[in-house]
């Protein structure tokens, strides 16, 4: 994935600490991630229900095989990169300010 370009001209919100600013951004991203997950589960359940294919009791006893586990690692790692993006962005801004 290409790195997102730097956003020039981002002003501090007077009175909002840098860490509060980051925390708000992380909460927004977390909530987004939760909404996506909920929507995907909803899609799955509806499709499976339509086909009469689902036995929900089996979900709790499911164990992924190696390939599925690796794929799930990728999903989780992408989620972490998304939620904690503000930490990376703030650091990049700090570097930009120090080296400009």
């Amino acid at each position: 994935m290409d790195k997102t370009p730097y956003t020039a001209g981002r002003r501090e919100i007077t009175g909002l600490s840098v860490l509060e600013d980051q925390a708000l951004a992380m909460i927004a991203a977390l909530a987004s991630e939760l909404a996506v997950a909920r929507e995907r589960i909803d899609t799955l359940e509806r499709m499976l229900e339509d086909k009469g294919a689902i036995d929900r009791t089996l979900i709790d006893s499911y164990a992924p095989d190696a390939a599925a586990a690796a794929e799930r690692d990728g999903i989780r790692q992408r989620m972490i990169a998304k939620i904690f993006r503000p930490l990376r962005d703030a650091t990049r801004r700090a570097i930009q300010e120090k080296t400009a």
Binding site: E20, D21, P86
Partner: peptide, 12 residues
């Protein structure tokens, strides 16, 4: 703060 966080999230 959340107004701007939502905008930056959208771009990301």
């Amino acid at each position: 703060g959340m107004f701007r966080a939502a905008q930056e999230l959208m771009w990301d």
